[in-house]
Simulated scan of single mutants.
Amino acid sequence: MSIVHLNTAGAGLMSTATLNAIQRFTSIEARIGSYETELAYEELLNVDLYRVAAGLLNAQPSDIGFFSSATEAWTSILSKLNFPRGKRVWVSASEYAANLIFFNYLKLSRDLRVEVIPTTATSPLDLDWVQRNLDEDVFLVSVSHLPSCCGVINPVEALGALLKDSSALYVVDACQSLGQLPLDVRDIHCDVLTGAGRKFLCGPRGSGIAYVSPRLLGQLELNFADLHAASTDGQVNRIEVSSARVLEIAEKSFSALVGLHTAMREYAEVGAAVNTEPYALLVQELRRLPQVQLLCEPFEQTGTVSFVPRNSSAKVFVSLARELGLNLWAGTAAHTPLLLKDLGATHFVRASVGRQVTLAQVEQALVTLRSL
């Protein structure tokens, strides 16, 4: 049975080249030793990896850091930021729950006022509200480019244009958009952008990327730096804070990074040429099915479409689909609580189309979806 994978928003399918790169590195490790293999890959791991990632984001290699996940990148960076007591933090309705949990802790410890940027009838961000309410009291603005629950596109470039001349720091969670949409940190005017290697980039699990602007790097309070960026005589620490690598841990999964390097290079070759027809067909045909209710219909979306089945639970629906060779995902409102709270959708089915998915595969998936 051929499997159609419509769960790229969870994890994309690695290409043969990416898998071979990981296996080759691991095989050499087993033969000559891990440290020795790391030395053999020194140019890739210490130079080209950062160059390729920087190229995807229109950043400098010194602004790039690598982590084990997008969440680790996001929390590692923001936890080193000194939030002034009583300031305001703005979040999007699309915010991932883990980000909200972080800010809720700060509400208790720093008396932060966490405010949600309103939506409009047609946009997930009310930019007029932003323009009216932006002042020196807003310390940080955090936006998930695409939410976990559906394919809604937040206008991060337009928001950045409003924020660029303010003192507010701007953080973009690009976990679901990296590898799917063009990302240019200069156009977005953000201070932090984080993304996952395993999703639309189709890299391995255990890999995450962060862009950190020089402005924000200079504001971080480092409570730890690993030996690759720091030294100590036992009494005094000396830390090199010239690049985002100071935020990394020296010990990491180098095989995952080697695989990520290949996945990023593959995406860089196709970039804006990714075929959007399979996704458009899927959405078009799902709209025709009376047994499902699509989520977030008024907003522009890409890559992911989510729906509530009317005659079964999301979990049962996804389980039946998997038995028939179709990978979907049963999501809950807990992952994106703000966006879904007014829709009354506690559970939903998420279908996400990676760049390898063909029109023929979507047609095959639609046969299964209609049967269910």
Rank of each mutant, 00 (worst) to 15 (best):
I3F: 06
I32G: 11
E38G: 11
E38F: 09
E42L: 09
N46F: 02
V47H: 08
D48T: 07
V52I: 06
L57D: 00
N58Q: 10
L78K: 00
W90P: 06
S94Y: 12
L108W: 12
S109P: 02
R110L: 02
L112G: 01
I117Q: 02
D126K: 05
W129N: 14
R132I: 15
E136C: 03
L140R: 05
V143F: 05
S148H: 14
C150M: 11
G151A: 03
I153H: 05
N154K: 11
A161M: 11
A161C: 15
V171R: 07
V172W: 04
A174Q: 00
C175G: 12
L178T: 08
G179Q: 06
P182M: 02
H189W: 05
H189S: 14
V192T: 00
L201T: 00
G218H: 05
E221T: 08
E221C: 07
A225M: 06
L227F: 11
S243Q: 02
R245W: 12
I249V: 08
S253K: 04
L260K: 02
M264T: 00
Y267W: 09
E269H: 12
V270D: 11
V270H: 08
N275Q: 07
L282I: 06
E285R: 10
E285P: 03
Q293T: 14
F307L: 01
V318K: 10
V318G: 09
L338Y: 00
L339A: 01
L340S: 06
S352M: 05
T358K: 05
A360P: 15
Q361R: 09
A365I: 01
